[in-house]
Design a protein around this nucleic acid. Structure first.
Lengths: 312, 312
DNA sequence: CATATCGATAAGTTTTATTGATGGTTTTTA
DNA sequence: TAAAAACCATCAATAAAACTTATCGATATG
């Protein structure tokens, strides 16, 4: 049994296809066929059920894949140990970021980070929290920036900052004349929300539900981007909530619609999250340092109340 | 990086010698030299400091060895998964047993076990608790039978039975006329003990110390075997304590010297212990079944008080 | 100072991994 | 439903690697 064989098994399991898996591994399909057969012969067990189309894992196969992933990931840690020892910060690093953080945070730190750590090849992907969790667990992401706490025992979190919610209330809205907004003023029924799957949507819902048990989805107008949310709101379709960083680059004509909350200000906790195995921890810490340093100048709220990003 | 290379690193680290390590791996010394060099080149770090005699691990080397052990052990688990799936109970199994359990317990279950599970190649070694713990942790033992609880977070325990202590009190001893013995009657100073390193010695000391803080080693007459202990006791050198199973095959002339304890009878807890990774769990469970079944007929004490086997 | 120990190195051999070509099934498409 | 495409297995050839024997040089030993 070799690490390479296990790696091939993982590739086939993920792609459910020998040919595609072979491409990803930069070898030809017969190589995978033969190596996986060899492993199956050695173990005297079928890992894949080749009669099914697309190919499927057998029951043992599933267990073997889990263990194989384990071994392959642990093997990466050896280079990690060496890098750590040498203080080397470099190599490929795959970072996920949720959509409502990506456009505001990324421009703030990216330039600084690549300047400070030029050997790191950052691969950044915009993903939902759910996708992020899955990919951190299966090793396709090294870390991610998301709203926390996530309460997942396989994932560790390091808080980067707290980002307050700010109300965006268009002209003509019942709350438009209020200077400061209180959480108790909120009503889900005239609130514009992001579409399902965004944790910022869940955060807002959690905030509102605190005062209303049942949410009536009579008025289902949801968007995938916060920009759209603001425009819809301008059309008089309701108020909405924005993460604080989004309010920094809002048009001046619209900024008069911003209303801050009474303290304790509802806020989301934004963290860098990573697998508990702590692979590539030097790079994670480097990211944390850069981002925390930059945010320190941008957000200075004190009395905040964290809103959970988890649905229900 | 290959599992084989990691295995070679482990062998050299353990033997502190390329030539010996090569023998254990059933390859020649140049193979080890080359493969380890290749790994070091790939990682761009020295794992061994070859200038020291005997050879030493570098600082990174130590960390790499730990991780390598991890990976190599996890790789064994793949065959384990297959065996478990197939219900296959077989292969090499290295079992450690402490000296005071070995001679009485082994004959009781060995024949039954190998008859029931003929495919298991048992390799049994007599080792002290300390040695057992080290070897379970480094993977040189699959399981062991020892007195518990050990309070080691890397080691799991499954209780097999409770074995009461029985007093052996020769003619002429102050306690010889007592029918039943009480714990409070014991005095370390006229008690014959096994030599240092035996947990049965520590168990007895714990039992006595419960009533006496300081143990004066004025009378240091200690033996490595319980047989010798009995003979020394017969010579009038003091009383001693025996594990119950040892009293079953004692000569009839000597059995009159046996005195049981008042309830709650002091006893040791005997368990099968294994690494928390639960490798070869099928065989461990098979052993547990056989031994528990056999002991059920042999020991039937009810009200026991467990004595810790740990020193101090 | 001769000798033994021990790891590195070199050259040659065996084993293993990989490739390109191809064949047999199954699935998809026209 | 026949043709095409997709897909994995197999084969023979080759490239790569792991391993062996022989030997060297450095260090320790008697």
């Amino acid at each position: 049994m070799t690490i390479t064989q296990l790696y091939y098994v993982l590739a086939v399991a993920e792609n459910q296809n020998f040919t595609k898996a072979a491409e990803k591994c930069f070898v030809t399909q017969p190589t995978l066929s033969m190596q996986i057969q060899k492993l199956e012969d050695q173990l005297e067990v079928q890992i894949f059920d080749r009669s099914k189309k697309p190919i499927e894992l057998t029951d043992v196969g599933k267990k073997i894949v889990n263990q194989a992933r384990n071994i392959v990931n642990e093997s990466y840690r050896i280079q990690d140990i060496v890098d750590q020892q040498k203080g080397f910060i470099g190599g490929e690093f795959r970072l996920g970021i949720i959509p409502t953080i990506m456009p505001t945070l990324l421009p703030m730190f990216l330039k600084t980070f690549i300047k400070k750590h030029p050997k790191v090849k950052l691969k950044i992907e915009e993903l939902t929290t759910e996708e992020i969790i899955a990919r951190i667990k299966d090793g396709h992401l090294d870390a991610a920036i998301a709203a926390t706490p996530l309460e997942d025992e396989n994932i560790k979190e390091r808080v980067l900052y707290f980002e307050p919610f700010v109300s965006y209330i268009p002209n003509g809205h019942r709350l438009h004349t209020n200077n400061k907004i209180d959480i108790t003023d909120l009503d889900v029924d005239d609130m514009l929300l992001l579409e399902d799957g965004h944790c910022f949507r869940d955060g807002v819902l959690n905030l509102c539900k605190a005062f209303k048990d049942h949410v009536d989805d009579k008025f289902q107008l949801e968007s995938g981007s916060i920009e759209t949310l603001i425009k819809l709101s301008n059309e008089g379709l309701g108020m909405t909530l924005l993460p604080y960083l989004h309010t920094l680059d809002i048009k001046s004509t619209e900024s008069k619609n911003l209303h801050y909350f009474n303290e304790p200000t509802p806020a989301r906790e934004v963290s860098i999250i990573y697998h508990k195995s702590e692979l590539k921890m030097q790079i994670i810490e480097a990211l944390q340092d850069v981002i925390s340093g930059i945010i320190r100048g941008a957000i200075a709220f004190q009395n905040v109340q964290i809103v959970s990003p988890l649905p229900k």
